[in-house]
Design a protein around this nucleic acid. Sequence first.
DNA 1: TAACTGTGTTGCTTCAAGTAATACAGTTAT
DNA 2: ATAACTGTATTACTTGAAGCAACACAGTTA
Lengths: 122, 122
Amino acid sequence: MIQIDYKSDKPIYEQIIQQFKLNIVKGIFKEGDKVISVRKMASILDITPSTVSKAYAELERQGVIETIRAKGTYIAGSGLQAQDISMEKVRKNLLDELIELKHAGVGLEQVQSLVRELYDSI
Amino acid sequence: MIQIDYKSDKPIYEQIIQQFKLNIVKGIFKEGDKVISVRKMASILDITPSTVSKAYAELERQGVIETIRAKGTYIAGSGLQAQDISMEKVRKNLLDELIELKHAGVGLEQVQSLVRELYDSI
DNA sequence: TAACTGTGTTGCTTCAAGTAATACAGTTAT
DNA sequence: ATAACTGTATTACTTGAAGCAACACAGTTA
């Protein structure tokens, strides 16, 4: 349910965070669902619990999950208000890729087409 | 002409690379232009020459500039064939941001609108 | 032709971030 | 009580970016 690319330069804890959001968008994770424990997740992914814990802590900070110490972790309500998505950061990252594409000679129409394809694939 | 955000988590040498591409797209840097030397750039940006050198090396690898040892560095022809843009990487990065947006409840139309705004701002 | 100046390069060190290993503390069920 | 689970905190290791200094190459000039 959680796919990690160990060869990626993207930190494992960030990949976990993203996979959670992806699973929520896809409806695989639903509000109130109990989330697999830090240790089990670490065991399955064959990584240290510290890394999983770091991911959970950040997910909680963003309001994606709720964690009760010594009890467990649950998917939070997708109260769209809580999604403290840093729009500023997303804009910057998007801009980075658009500069790359425009420099490579890719026009707006082709970019829009690519965006649609990717968005629909989620 | 080169803007660096020292507080950014993005490596300085990557920011230099991006700024070069941006200036080329904007027409500020043109084919054949002599590029400011490694030392001067380092002095202006108040960073070490090795960081600038690293950026230049990567830009040359991508065919964006041409460097002649002991002579200087020049903007290469935008032979669109040389733009060894790693489309695979761009796709991945774009997908990352789209997941973030979709999870936050942003619809395709709003995304397209944002993309157009950003692309046109370049 | 020797010295000087401007160019990019390379090696060593420092520092921050991601990851790992381990120990700690609270909850639940037997 | 106590065993078996939960998440948390601390410490150490590894890696990559960046700073600093010494280097190597090419052109110019006295």
